[in-house]
Design a protein around this nucleic acid. Structure first.
Lengths: 238, 238
DNA sequence: ACGGAAAAATGAACGTGTTCAAAAATATAT
DNA sequence: ATATATTTTTGAACACGTTCATTTTTCCGT
């Protein structure tokens, strides 16, 4: 009557319980798929190709990834992990410096999968999709990344009080999404325009950071966050 | 040896030349499709259903719309036309008032097709898609809407000099895209959060409009536009 | 009125993502 | 060890977007 599960509630897309062997197979399929994506592109890679390259049947891949895009979600989740690690070992400095460094690091890690990320965003922006950016399935991932930006702010040399830090983290998270979207659209060589935008944003943030101490600016930020914050779901602040 | 075409270079997605009858059929299929979209949703509507409802073969619909999403593009092009007309007969007032009115009007017109627009944006945000927002195929449409925002600014009571108006129009166009994206994600009843964001933006714009006369703000805007402007392609300014 | 060219329209097929019922393999209880 | 439940794996099928060779209709010059 007892079950033989080992891993418990790993993620949302995976089946309820996986034995060690199952986990291993899942990982192998994912690795194979990511290799093909990086090699010949996401759209050009067929589910049947992935199955063949992984040496298993087509149906099996659907046991571990209920959608093709879910493989890209797994990839993104992995780089989110790396983002967290990067920020943990980020030199102390101003908010602007740390935020810019975090964004740039993420871009570098995602670069080989730009096209795949484009398709993921395409699906993620369809509001009632299973993988909607602001949907329930990605809630945990959102909270994780939000926490990373909170850390970017709180451990900076010019960190504000915790309450405003939460507001700023929400704004940073929104800015992060917008920034990724911009990057995906940027067709200039080496995404140079995105680099310029990053520099611009960094300068702007540094220039206007002191203004945040003014009641006017603080109030406006608080008002904005009160509007858009709830769309991201609970982040620990409420 | 002469050809029998009547309409010349109507748009990008349609076949090269269409006789009046062809145009009529195209319109009929589009009308049928939009009805189905509004009725049972875009994703749930099948190309075969559209063909059946329009009383023609499946293949024929592909003669007039090379992709399913192209029907949504046609819909968007229509509401862009309506946006232009609305702005033409917009009461004189401040930039903030006029911009907010334009955005709100667009939302009202697009409301019945929110889900379809979501899917369109999904495709449009895949950079190398045939229908990429910033791609060549939608260039004309982009220029048209940009012109509308330019008019919003230039014929306002607090219109700036033409050069800054161009910069502002570019920023407004980018803001417009971001705003639509936000609206698509907004799951609150009646998209109330989007309404609040609109109010916030309007207030903010009104509050900081005077600051644009300051060299500092003007320079920052100019720098931003110099970065992101080229992504939209030629808009008449260059 | 006729013949030929261009356009409109058809219907069958293909590829790909996805589903599902059933078989094979594996672990647990007695 | 055997029986039983559970998980893994398979392979065939479906649905839908899309393509294409072919046929039918429409238009124009003579």
């Amino acid at each position: 009557m007892t079950t033989q599960l080992t891993t418990e509630t790993v993620g949302k897309g995976e089946p309820a319980g996986l034995t060690p062997k199952g986990e291993q197979t899942r990982k192998h399929i994912l690795e194979t798929a990511l290799g093909l994506f990086a090699d010949k592109g996401y759209q050009a890679t067929t589910m049947r190709e992935i199955a063949a390259a992984a040496g298993c049947s087509l149906g099996l891949t659907y046991r571990y990834f209920s959608r093709k895009e879910e493989m890209v979600v797994a990839l993104y989740a992995r780089t989110a992990q790396e983002l967290e690690e990067q920020v943990a070992s980020l030199p102390h400095g101003t908010i602007a410096e740390r935020y810019a460094a975090a964004l740039e690091g993420d871009l570098v890690r995602l670069a080989p999968f730009r096209e795949a990320m484009g398709t993921l965003f395409g699906v993620a922006l369809v509001p009632d999709s299973e993988l909607a950016v602001l949907g329930e399935n990605l809630q945990e991932l959102r909270a994780q990344v939000w926490g990373v930006f909170r850390k970017v702010i709180m451990e900076a040399s010019d960190a504000p009080k915790p309450k405003q830090a939460d507001d700023l983290a929400t704004a940073f998270y929104a800015g992060y999404l917008a920034f990724l979207l911009f990057w995906l659209q940027d067709r200039t060589p080496n995404q140079q325009t995105t680099q310029e935008l990053l520099s611009f944003g960094k300068d702007l943030l540094a220039k206007f950071r002191p203004a945040l101490r003014l009641p006017l600016a603080g109030k406006q930020l608080a008002r904005l966050v009160k509007i858009i914050g709830p769309m991201f779901g609970p982040m620990g602040n409420v």
